[in-house]
Design a protein around this nucleic acid. Sequence first.
DNA 1: GCACTACGGATAGCAGTGCTCTCCGCTATC
DNA 2: GATAGCGGAGAGCACTGCTATCCGTAGTGC
Lengths: 230, 230
Amino acid sequence: MRIGELSRETGVAVPTIKFYVREGLLPAGRLTSPNQASYDDGHVRRLRLIRGLIDVGGLSVATVREVLTAVDAPGGSVHKVLGAAHDAITPVPTGRPEGLPEARRTVAELLRRRGWRAEADHPAAEAMAVALAAFQDLGQGAFVEVLDDYAEACERVADADLAYVGRHADVEELVESVVVGTVLGDAVLTALRRLAHVDRSARRYEQHGGGPVAGGGAGAGVTEGGADPS
Amino acid sequence: MRIGELSRETGVAVPTIKFYVREGLLPAGRLTSPNQASYDDGHVRRLRLIRGLIDVGGLSVATVREVLTAVDAPGGSVHKVLGAAHDAITPVPTGRPEGLPEARRTVAELLRRRGWRAEADHPAAEAMAVALAAFQDLGQGAFVEVLDDYAEACERVADADLAYVGRHADVEELVESVVVGTVLGDAVLTALRRLAHVDRSARRYEQHGGGPVAGGGAGAGVTEGGADPS
DNA sequence: GCACTACGGATAGCAGTGCTCTCCGCTATC
DNA sequence: GATAGCGGAGAGCACTGCTATCCGTAGTGC
């Protein structure tokens, strides 16, 4: 197929496709003439992946490029592929909060306590330390007390993720499932956390309400009359 | 204090503070003369909150403004404040994937199955549906099979979050803990998920490796309950 | 009083991101 | 042979998040 059909197939505008090719996210089409090229299903698949990472995962074009480089690298073990994907995805924290060294110790202690085989200088550990230091700066230092609950929840999620990823026999498919599962899985997880918050706060603070309310009211988690947020 | 001291106190450049005031994120100082103003601890606190939401939470200036509007609104119940914060924080999904209607049904079914008191048209439910539809488009439709694991993990997290939030007696403090806990909690949760991935994949795919590898494990002085702002 | 720095307020500018537009010569197709 | 579309390259554009400059005034040390 040519670029127009690729565009129609994926819903991505032609100039945008050209832009992705220029930026190295999408391989160029196979030239059939000096100025004609043909694209195949691999391009469709790759383009859908790019849009998913950008639109749903919220990744930047530069980050997507890194991720795809990791995806395309002749993969070693699953562990290494996952590590490469993590390195590409995990954003380098920008801020330099005050309590960072102490937060780093808190993270290292958590890893030790749970026996996780992860280096204390892993990008994700650093990102977490920055977040914990921000909690501290905001007077929410007591948040560290829920970390073990978070960690246990994450163990459960990670077990499910690894089991899911592990069932892919084909290597390329597996690598892609790692990337998709990691990036889009974040989106699913945070959305679910929000929904669980709504449920838990409804149960805790709105005793009177009946059972589940699937499909009812408009927008906000406000099912009760009263002060309407403008 | 005047703007220079506020800048020194928080590490935010003076022109940036002026910018935040213009953008309505930070209230202007109290004028002591036609062209002199004074700032107080509330400004310091608010400025720290803004930077935390932007730097660690990754929120845009516009989103921070919405969140702070919700924070400043004369709060009703915790449930309402949480709902308002959610509405401000949860990004409106941009993409229009193909399998969206089916994904919406999947989400509604999950809510029903778990008995969560959350509306199926909540922004987070819609965000989740978009993510699930993206999974489907990318040939990862089987991801729905791990949703219950995710949901159980989120119930645990949400219980911990609500318990944490619930211990704040002061209303303003409580509202701020909701916002901070929601936004920065996301960052902590995704970072922990990464670390759990590393651990689980090390255990599963790297049999030879020894025990945990927490590098800087010397830090014993982890301040539990460290509510003292430095 | 006087120099000097910092201030408040306003406007303009600037770097980065993610496309989008335009142009060119060419080619497949009717 | 007309016409639509193509590949490739460069310029442009809208938006975001600051940053720089200017102006007239206020506080401060001498």
